[in-house]
């Protein structure tokens, strides 16, 4: 249950109290999303900047964000974020032996948000490295075409929402039904992009892109256009979510996406925990 109205996207008028240097204002206000906030784990590949991501999750409503180095304790969390910093091989290697824990957590429907590299790792393999990916989703990761566009694709670009009306979407809905969730946001776009308008601006920094395999094309819920390429920008399959851009750096739109993910984690807990207690 909400104890207060959800935080508004715009903090524009906050800087009326401009000259005070209290940086905690935003975090404090937005943290009041729900009584109980989801426990979120960020997996650390050991490659750097997780601070902004952690801060963004906290600003947008989780009071309990942990940076974890192994996946053994995943069952203690309501959601997992695979961050988007680093290189493919070292990142996959850092999961290493814990891959089994991750896969079984995914099987148990823990919501997972892969950001950029974190999403790319879910696929079979990447041109960025030689190691095998996590193979959670069928498909490959390839370098952007340097001859045609500037690489990295870095900066603000807009996303076009995709609407699927197919059998496979229905089967996804059925699968979600097990955990009491359903993808239906009345517009058929899935849950991560709830309240996100078509052509919203988000911040990209990447040199690689995903090519979902034939059977997983339906997971793409938003694309972006870069040069004459159409690049998948957001994927969603059951409780697995991925963004090619960085929601933690995407201003108000990114914050909304993070809040959506946190709400997914919360609603997942609400349904899963009672069954566990039985």
């Amino acid at each position: 249950m909400r104890t207060s109205s959800p935080p508004t996207l715009s903090n524009k008028n906050k800087n009326k109290s401009n000259n005070n240097d209290n940086d905690q204002n935003i975090g404090a206000n937005n943290a009041a999303l729900t009584d109980v906030t989801p426990r979120i784990a960020i997996f650390d590949y050991g490659a750097g900047n997780l601070f902004s991501l952690k801060a963004a999750l906290e600003r947008n409503g989780s009071r309990d964000v942990s940076v974890i180095q192994d996946m053994k304790s995943l069952s203690n969390y309501d959601g997992l974020v695979l961050p988007g910093v680093g290189n493919f091989d070292p990142a996959v290697k850092s999961i290493g032996k814990d891959k089994g824990f991750l896969i079984s957590a995914i099987d148990c429907k823990i919501p997972v948000l892969g950001i950029c590299l974190g999403m790319e790792m879910l696929f079979n393999a990447s041109e960025e490295g030689r190691m095998e990916g996590l193979k959670v989703i069928d498909g490959h990761v390839r370098l952007l075409d340097k001859k045609r566009v500037k690489v990295p694709h870095m900066g603000w670009n807009n996303i076009q929402l995709v609407r699927h009306k197919t059998n496979s979407e229905n089967s996804i809905k059925k699968r979600n039904h097990v955990s009491g969730n359903n993808n239906d946001t009345s517009d058929g776009r899935g849950r991560l992009l709830r309240n996100i308008k078509d052509n919203s601006w988000v911040y990209f920094v990447h040199s690689y892109r995903i090519f979902p395999g034939r059977k997983s094309r339906q997971i793409v819920v938003a694309n972006t256009r870069y040069g004459d390429n159409i690049i998948p920008a957001v994927i969603e399959r059951g409780n697995i979510f991925g963004t090619q851009f960085h929601p933690e750096k995407s201003g108000p739109v990114g914050s909304q996406i993070i809040r959506n993910f946190l709400e997914i984690c919360m609603s997942n807990t609400a349904v899963v925990n009672p069954t566990e207690n039985k």
Binding site: D23, I26, G27, G48, N49, F51, S52, A55, A56, E58, R59, Y203, V205, H246, E248, K249, S250, G251, P252, G254, S255
Partner: peptide, 25 residues
Amino acid sequence: ASVIDIPFTVGGGIKRLEDARAILL
């Protein structure tokens, strides 16, 4: 980093790998 949600760059006086790492971390 804890109050803004847009990217930012830091420069000036970064001489070594460790300086860069400290800033990025």
